[in-house]
Amino acid sequence: MTATARDRVIERKIRTRPDRLPIGPLERVLRWTLRVVVALVFAFLVIPILIVVIESFNSVDYLTFPLEGWSLVHYERFFGDPAWIDATLKSAKIAVLAAVIATVVGTFGAWGMARTPGRGAGFAFALMYSPIVVPIIVLAMGFYFVFADLRLVGDWVAIAVAYSVMGVPYVLTSVSSALQQLDPELENAARTLGARMRQTLARITLPQLTSAISAGALFAFVIAFDEAVIILFVAGSDSVTLARRLWDSVRYDLTPTLAVAGTVLIVVCVGLFLITELIKALRERRRS
């Protein structure tokens, strides 16, 4: 990072303290109202998720709240049921492959776009960014028709490739914005020092994009791990993912075992997110 870029980051971090203006009675009332409203909204955001986690510890076979009693019986049932385990592993397998593909495609796309002048880059951006805009039900139908034509229904690799499409825009935006922060003179410097384009990319540019690339990759993984619409159309019998199984169960038998499956999804996705945030925070602390 150049000195000015660093300054900008620091500046952004040192947010000015809240107003120290003298507070009148009207403002005091407004401020408290605001706080109560915001607290309620936070509760609205978080409580439903907590409910799922709590429900997973229920001791009876039907959903109740408050719980009839605490127990791990549904965890035993979930982890003892090969169908659930298989579904979880299948989800993980598909999501990893989808994330890898999306990361490669999105990263090279972002870099190529940044280094290609003119209309070509604009067209590429529209193509790679638009999956974020297209309603998933539309994507799902497209994949359904093609999968049916090519007899790919249920093929986990094909599903992963389809999922990677949804991850590409996130990798693309993440890497693109990091590239904009990057000093273009660094690549020029490497070239004048004797590095070819390929070496410059591998030794200078990509190493500085690692955090942006991994953020994008993580998002692509989570999207694929959670995906619940496309899978309804293309799953077949041997590619039942965790989300697919959860969907079927929600429709046909509501039990706390579902809450366990939901908790697994929450823990994997939110856990990954928290880990990366933690790593980011640690890296920033070490840097300063």
Binding site: T2, A3, N188, A189, R191, T192, Q208
Partner: peptide, 30 residues
């Protein structure tokens, strides 16, 4: 000719030091 074939040394206005490399690694790069 492409820049890497010209064998010129260029000191950039903002230095363009590689931030992920140490001083020794920067100097060793060429």
């Amino acid at each position: 000719e492409v820049p890497e074939k010209r064998n010129i040394g260029l000191v950039f206005q903002n230095y363009a030091l590689f931030p992920h490399m140490t001083v020794a690694q920067n100097v060793a790069f060429p």
